[in-house]
Design a protein around this nucleic acid. Sequence first.
DNA 1: AGTACCACCTGACGGC
DNA 2: TGCCGTCAGGTGGTAC
Length: 257
Amino acid sequence: MPELPEVELFSRYFAQHALGQRVARVRVLDERILGEVRKAAFARALTGSEFSGVRRHGKHLFADAGRTWLHLHFGMTGDLAYYADTPPRFARVIVDFDNGWHLVYEDMRLFGVVDLTPDPQTYIVDHHLGPDPLELTLPKFRQLVAGRRGAVKALLMSQDILAGIGNLYADEILYQTSIDPRRPADRLSEAEVKAVFTVMRRILNNVIDRKSRGEDYPARYLIPRREEGERCPRCGGSIRRTVVFGRTTYYCGKHQG
DNA sequence: AGTACCACCTGACGGC
DNA sequence: TGCCGTCAGGTGGTAC
């Protein structure tokens, strides 16, 4: 489930392996992964170009290819791999570089998107993406929350309000701030809004740091305990399961009341 | 404004 | 053994 932290790692991975290399050839193995662009136009636009920079906004990754930008979204099972010999099982698009190596976009469930866009800002505006949580200030976050009568979990997950948080991290943020996911956003106290802002950014940065070092989630996180009846590592309560905003939601029945 | 529900897709898993 | 239903999750569209 690639959310903001995972896409940030993809972005670093892309930069590490692809920047400065010339694209010799592009192979689209499954056209269903393409967005607006057609196969031939996609290959034509990238062949011969060189990726000069990478940008991430929320769960979206953009790579500067000169005349156009490559746009990647990872859906639920999307991934990148840089390899020399054997492509992964669910390879959908393969970029062959001059040096003989390959960068592959793989996606078992095909919920992701590979596309071209004039530039990141155009895409962000056209698709009504909200601000990235890591480029946000507390006053701006307060403005986003003000007047929102829906569930706080729905707000965190709505990409047009805030871009980058998905189901898992929304639950994690509310778990760590002891807030019931069904609470209306505009009924949170000022202190709670501040806590959500602070904890949200701490979790995202912490997970990016840990995963970039190959470490797991901390033992006190909810994420490794997404199962009904699990013990809450914070208070010993029982982990419950429900549906909020159409998504399976886990929370501690004791300290998130 | 906010939410419910479906579709997209495929592998894992439990039940029989 | 193997079939079937269900679930997982991001997004986008439609209906209310």
